[in-house]
Design a protein around this nucleic acid. Sequence first.
DNA 1: CCAAGAATTTCGGTGCGCCTAAAATATAAA
DNA 2: TTTATATTTTAGGCGCACCGAAATTCTTGG
Lengths: 217, 217
Amino acid sequence: MPSEQIENYLKNIYKIQSVEGKVSTSSLSEKLQISPASVSEMVKKLADEGSLTHTPYKGVELTESGKRAALKIVRKHRLWEMFLVEVLHFGWDEIDEEAEKLEHIMSGKMEDKIDEVLGFPSVDPHGDPIPTKSGTVKTIRSFALTDVEEGSTVRVVRVNDANAELLQYASSIGLSLNKKIALKQRMKFDNSLIIKIGSKEMTISATLAENIFVESV
Amino acid sequence: MPSEQIENYLKNIYKIQSVEGKVSTSSLSEKLQISPASVSEMVKKLADEGSLTHTPYKGVELTESGKRAALKIVRKHRLWEMFLVEVLHFGWDEIDEEAEKLEHIMSGKMEDKIDEVLGFPSVDPHGDPIPTKSGTVKTIRSFALTDVEEGSTVRVVRVNDANAELLQYASSIGLSLNKKIALKQRMKFDNSLIIKIGSKEMTISATLAENIFVESV
DNA sequence: CCAAGAATTTCGGTGCGCCTAAAATATAAA
DNA sequence: TTTATATTTTAGGCGCACCGAAATTCTTGG
């Protein structure tokens, strides 16, 4: 059984790998808030254990076994997030921190029970896919709200969960999962958008829009 | 915020104190499965921090502040146990181990949410009282099934949760919280009891009976 | 009362994950 | 291409909670 720190290393390597392709010591150090020196050491250890391959001074890549371990934790994290929202009625923006701790102490039995109570969900409250028990992840096709054409209507399928304040704000303006959004106008000078959610019209910044992912409706 | 090990030390000191009055290094060592040498060191540290008083070569006693910290953990443990049974449908005998991990990573907010979902319970699934948020514990008046008079009927209010196998067995014979038990006969040669639960008559060992606590009905 | 024997504490040491500072290597600008 | 700068790794160390062994102190039977 991997320790909590190892789980965190693997999970975050997986996440960086998904977004940036390449995983450097410094990006990991940044994400984990651990000194580059320590990360370098740990990476060596993980390479020895076969969870990843490491080319010194280059970068890191998860092995199959490392990826499997990472996906296990991602699954647990997202199941907990779902549980916190659905069963304990936590807000969108409060769940990441709690799930961060819970994911490491979740037995297989617990995982199954929670999965069952939730009705075997396929995405978490931010719209991120929940990996299956066997370790597959559904890719959700979507594009950023920034890229929507003026005049079209779309549906929110995912919100970037990297920033709690952003989530907090999004939810405060009624921008939540599965909501329909009509794009009225794009301002040329700063790319901010005038949108309509339900009957309410509002302006949102380009920065916010970059973190909202939608599909055509 | 106390670390996980410290929480475990305090919780177990509290438990031993409740049952045996005196808390020795060896009893703690036994319960925590940590060497006497290590326990002795940690006790010194806890004394320095003001959580307990320690008379070398004698024993240990929680201070008010130590007791408060211990009760916080006991409360969290029992809330989780309740939650595991009521919401996740775990069995009586499976919950202690899970709660043992969960208790240490429960934020105040989480505590409140769970308390609320459960309807502010006053006892856990074994009948042990859940300390209040302010740190008071209701004493439940009861006596061991061993001490019941022949012919009388009683109600189960608590089952000693120290042994999972015992819990497992108790539940398998339909002996659960709030069940009514009629004591038909006590065998003189080994103190085993013939009891009736509902319409079913059965024999239980004295050892089991010592761990079942009841009140008159 | 005194000498085992039992319980407790002290001592020296370990593993683990972290750190800072210094050395090695890679990258980019001149 | 060379050199300055940025990134990464190595070296040396630290704190924490643990350990076994040895020293100390308590307890109890003779």
